[in-house]
Amino acid sequence: MQTKAILGLAEVNAILDAAQQAAEANGWQVTVAVTDDSGELLGLRRLDGAAPMTAMISAQKARTAALSHKETQVFERMINEGRTAFLSAPLEGLLEGGVPVVVDGRVIGAVGISGVKSDQDAQVAKAAVAAIG
């Protein structure tokens, strides 16, 4: 029987806390979403001042990163470089800011950030993932 690492409550809270710290250090109002490896939401934190729609977008970015095992910037870049047919894929959250959580070479979840520029969202997401190293 195989075993796998999972994101427990302690890891989810560490990710949420690290993302909040990274965002607040830059004065950014964002929402942070954390999912398991199947893209199901484990935690969500909308910082004061973050727009309501950022909750939905951050969760979609995290889900896409978890299911694809790729950072969502891959999809944004692909579409921006002309592969617009990819917009018909059954995924949402195709903007930069979704980052998978990888442990021992396996994706165990993902983080999605929404609220600032896409590259800034990704910066916060990467800081959050790094918190559980």
Rank of each mutant, 00 (worst) to 15 (best):
V30N: 06
V30K: 04
E92T: 13
Q120K: 11
T64A: 15
K61E: 09
L91I: 08
P90K: 09
P90L: 06
V102W: 03
Q60K: 13
D17F: 09
T35W: 09
V103W: 09
G82R: 09
L95K: 09
L87D: 07
L91Y: 14
S114T: 01
E81Y: 04
A127T: 00
I57F: 10
Q20T: 13
A5S: 15
E76D: 13
E96W: 03
A130H: 11
A62P: 07
D48M: 04
N13Y: 05
A14Y: 08
A55C: 11
G39A: 00
S114H: 02
R77W: 00
D36Y: 03
G112R: 02
W28L: 14
G98M: 08
G97I: 06
A5G: 11
D36V: 00
Q73I: 12
A23D: 06
D36H: 06
G82A: 11
R46L: 03
G43T: 04
T31N: 08
D104G: 13
K117I: 00
K61G: 07
G27N: 08
R83K: 12
L16N: 10
A22L: 07
N13F: 02
E76M: 13
G82I: 04
E81V: 01
I15S: 12
I79L: 03
G8A: 14
E96N: 14
A122N: 12
V74D: 14
T54V: 05
A25D: 12
K117G: 03
A125M: 05
G43I: 03
V103N: 10
Q120H: 11
A22S: 13
N13K: 13
V116S: 06
D48I: 00
N80T: 01
Q2I: 00
E76I: 02
A19K: 05
A131V: 11
D36M: 06
L41W: 00
L7K: 10
I113D: 04
V34A: 07
V34F: 09
W28A: 12
G39S: 00
A18C: 08
A33C: 07
I15P: 12
R45F: 05
H69R: 06
L95N: 10
D121F: 02
I6M: 14
A125F: 04
K126D: 01
A19G: 15
